[in-house]
Design a protein around this nucleic acid. Sequence first.
DNA 1: CGAACAATTGAACCGATTCAAGATGCGTGG
DNA 2: CCACGCATCTTGAATCGGTTCAATTGTTCG
Lengths: 241, 241
Amino acid sequence: MPTQNSALAPSYTKCSQCGLMKLCLPSGLDPQDMIQLENIIELSTPYNDNQSVFHANQTFECIYTVKSGMFKTLVIDVNGNEHILGFHLPGELFGLDAIYPKKYISSAISLGTSSVCAIHYTDLETLSSKLPSLQRQLFCLMSKEVHTFQSLTVEHAADQKLAGFILALSVRYKQRGYSQTRINLMMPRRDIANHLNMAAETVSRLFKRFQQEGLIYIQRSDLQITNMEALKQLAGCASYC
Amino acid sequence: MPTQNSALAPSYTKCSQCGLMKLCLPSGLDPQDMIQLENIIELSTPYNDNQSVFHANQTFECIYTVKSGMFKTLVIDVNGNEHILGFHLPGELFGLDAIYPKKYISSAISLGTSSVCAIHYTDLETLSSKLPSLQRQLFCLMSKEVHTFQSLTVEHAADQKLAGFILALSVRYKQRGYSQTRINLMMPRRDIANHLNMAAETVSRLFKRFQQEGLIYIQRSDLQITNMEALKQLAGCASYC
DNA sequence: CGAACAATTGAACCGATTCAAGATGCGTGG
DNA sequence: CCACGCATCTTGAATCGGTTCAATTGTTCG
């Protein structure tokens, strides 16, 4: 049984970048192509808590895959208010939104000690025009990304949003081989609230209610899902399906 | 001076599909490549009001570009509630979100008499692996699409959202050669409200307020922007930038 | 231990929704 | 051409979910 995701995932520390990329690219590439892909990937030194991978307005160069830990991407509006666009788990990509404007739109910040692989976009573009399977993967990935944000634009009640958020984390961790019922949130309540467009107080009250109703057990950032079905029922279809 | 967009845009009725594609693909393709692209595009017969181009769950085959009129894409949640994901103006693409799941996620419905061009996705994929410039364009387009939805996830007050919506339409029509100050809304208040996650009554009240404040003049679906700067000020940065 | 920060809890408040009614515009047929 | 009927839009008043503000508790770390 997988353990809580606070430590590096065993599957990551043991596996090659090839394995990492397989996790990033949903339906896989053939091994020959994978080797070529590995050649354009750069490992970077780990980040401590709250460090930036890139900032909004910097020239776009690389897209990133999370190797361990977690990152958040956020934008700052004209009034100086932050808005967290999303959280990125091991095996997930970020930086794709910078392709069109040729500069980063968002800033990427580490949550706790975390590390990434960097992929130069020009290299990726060149390679994917040589490898149709890679091209297909990338189109799929970007379509999925569109999807994720589409789901977020559908308004729900606060409890549905939070339930959906928890379930989405559960599904994503499961896909990467972590526990789907025990999750280390890593981000503070304030960040969850910000991402879901609600007050931190509301998140706090809802976590309490969910626990009273037996849906979850939560202690600080250690979250256990105790009634998956009820949680799904509550979320309706919010964000994760 | 461009006229209101209620009739077909002159630039469209006169121009070839090549011209249409140029509008869809931001930074253009060289003429040679464009000819190859034209070969995989199919014109379809026009739709009357409220007809469906595709429905959610149908097998994904084509992506579409709007030739004239307007289309909306919408999803229906588990409770049977509609949510309008977006409105698609002439020269814009829709159906990209179906690539990853290989079936349409949303349904596309015409608003008034409208027409499209269909592009078989498998052909497009094949062609774009031969034409690096086309591949680049498509990555850009999808990145832009991610962008659009990212912006929508940032919560604003109702008046900011509506102001942002109006401005976004203005910008998009301008890009396609229509008037940026006089817009035919085409969709009912209910649809605007639904898309922006608010009640139709709120839209009505806000249009009235905007008119009283001299930002717009609106008569049924005929909208004129009378104070662009103030509208931008109000919207802050919502959705259009 | 004590400072600084994060999370919780309670109470007043507010923006937007809901519900209900009325106004307006539009197509149809007499 | 006007009268009718339907759908859309507008307007007002009551209500509610979630925010804001303020105070308290809990946690982490030098």
